[in-house]
């Protein structure tokens, strides 16, 4: 009987550990991205890096003055995106998308993607869950919060 108990204990411990690992597979949002710098990037996808631990969508955005800037938008893992319904050939280069997200703290042309919206109106949550990103309602697994919630709350979420 003790052996059974021991195995059960080990399994429970293993499950808890795995949950911890899953959370730490993503880096904390606050370390690299600024919740106070929201982005809205519109334009054709020019390149996709289908890589671990994060996929990157390169989108050519047309600025107000007509110039073009390529933004690199971070997404979840290839596995996460597959489970949400897209694979490496779902978004061919040239697809027009709208990505909202948050700019990186170093103010480079890089951001953390939240929702990707396609021309037909379909929306995909492209980001990662449990990273401490603002609760803007993009992540369906996370209860959204009223906009007036104080921004300081976002830091306590740092998932690792």
């Amino acid at each position: 009987m003790t052996a059974v108990k021991r195995i059960f204990g080990a399994t429970a411990l293993g499950a808890l550990t795995l949950m911890g690992v899953q959370a730490s597979a993503h880096h904390a949002f606050g370390a690299e991205f600024d919740p106070n710098r929201p982005l809205l990037i519109k334009g054709p996808v020019v390149k996709i890096e289908w890589t671990n631990p994060h996929a990157w969508f390169h989108v050519e955005h047309t600025n107000e003055d007509g110039s073009k800037t390529v933004w690199m938008m971070e997404a979840g893992t290839p596995n996460t995106l597959l489970r949400r319904g897209i694979h490496r050939n779902s978004v061919p280069v040239g697809t027009e998308v709208v990505i909202d997200g948050y700019q990186s703290k170093d103010l480079s042309n890089r951001g953390n993607g939240r929702n990707m919206t396609f021309a037909n109106g379909q929306t995909l949550f492209m980001g990662s869950s449990g990273t401490g990103a603002p609760r803007d309602g993009a992540d369906p697994t996370e209860p959204s919060r009223p906009a007036e919630a104080k921004p300081a709350d976002e830091d306590e979420e740092a998932g690792d």
Binding site: T17, V21, A25, T51, N52, P53, T77, P78, L82
Partner: peptide, 21 residues
Amino acid sequence: ALHESLWVYPLVESTHVLTLM
């Protein structure tokens, strides 16, 4: 292939963390 893999990279990464523990 490993960099772009759907399952193997996350499994390798998790195994690395579990076995280092």
